[in-house]
């Protein structure tokens, strides 16, 4: 039962992440929704899988996958946003502040 609830929460957050990916205006904001919602969604699904299978090899494997996803997705987000800025992706027109511009040159 608890496994089903966790997996449902995970799927729900993944859907939110995907909606954000479509609705938000520029690369930077899209990455925000893509990393945060999808990471918690995947972690929740993995936790649900761990509870579903009980103590055993699947349990330890899914628990180990959680920190791997955490570190890889944060590092990937950082690499993508850094790359996007240096490639010259435009910030959205609602942007209020850009301290980074002066430091790059």
């Amino acid at each position: 039962m608890i496994a089903v609830i966790l997996i449902c929460i995970g799927v729900l957050f993944n859907i939110f992440g995907c909606i954000g990916l479509i609705r938000l205006p520029d690369v930077y904001n899209r990455l925000q929704s893509a990393t945060k919602c999808v990471t918690l969604g995947c972690c929740s699904i993995l936790l649900g899988a761990a509870f579903h299978f009980g103590i055993g090899d699947a349990f330890f494997k899914s628990l180990l996958a959680i920190p791997i996803i955490f570190f890889s997705s944060t590092v990937a987000a950082h690499a993508l946003i850094h790359g996007a800025y240096h490639f010259g992706a435009k910030l959205d027109k609602r942007t209020v502040k850009d301290d980074y511009k002066d430091s790059v040159k």
Partner: peptide
């Protein structure tokens, strides 16, 4: 996650992005 989900689902999208130091 709830914060981002709220901003995504809100019809007016209350965002005010910026890069800070």
């Amino acid at each position: 996650n709830f914060d981002v989900a709220y901003r995504v689902l809100h019809p007016a999208m209350p965002i005010k992005p910026g890069i800070v130091k």
